[in-house]
Computed example of a mutant assay.
Amino acid sequence: MGSDVRPLLGLDDVILDLTATANRADALSMVGVAREVAALTGGKLSISEPGEVSITKSAGSLTLKIADTQACPAYIGTVIEQVKIAPSPEWLQQRLRAAGVRPISNVVDITNYVLLEWGQPLQAFDGDRIKSVASSQNLTIGVRFDQ
């Protein structure tokens, strides 16, 4: 009789299939669920703090145009340069698959992972593509209601 192959393939995770009602958007992320479980059980919530990130002003400019600042009071953007599009590390691909999300690339996958973990939606844009479509060297992202 041999050994169970699931741990070797990374298939031994426990997966919880949860449903949240519309009024509980906080329960749609891993951290939100952990907070809820800690509150219900009196358990201690332990979330690691992210390290410091230094941001330097780059030569590229980014302009955000928010059509309705009352509907969208906060939208933050930054330019990250010299990113190589590649497959994500296997651990990240495995976690996304376990959550029912198909891995695509390192940039797309990390935005999806942050959404699943923190409930914070992110969007990554290809700056070169935006510049070519807009026929401009300035990056402008517009935020509006879809018609």
Rank of each mutant, 00 (worst) to 15 (best):
T69E: 15
T63C: 05
G10Q: 01
C72G: 10
I66C: 02
T69N: 13
L96S: 00
V107L: 08
A86F: 09
P87T: 14
D68Q: 13
A98L: 07
A98C: 12
L16N: 07
G51P: 01
K57T: 14
V101R: 00
L92Q: 02
A67W: 06
S29T: 08
K57R: 14
G43N: 07
T63Q: 11
A38P: 02
S105P: 02
E36V: 03
S58H: 09
D12C: 08
I104E: 03
I55D: 12
G77A: 05
P50W: 05
A39V: 06
K44Y: 08
L45C: 10
T41D: 05
G51E: 08
G60L: 12
D12E: 11
R24W: 03
S88R: 00
A38G: 04
I104H: 00
I80V: 15
R97A: 04
L64Q: 10
V14T: 12
L18R: 05
A20P: 01
I104L: 07
V108D: 02
E90T: 09
A98W: 00
E49F: 08
T41C: 07
L92D: 00
T41A: 04
V79F: 01
N106M: 05
V108A: 05
Q93E: 09
G100C: 12
K84N: 13
V5T: 14
K84L: 13
E90S: 15
L16F: 10
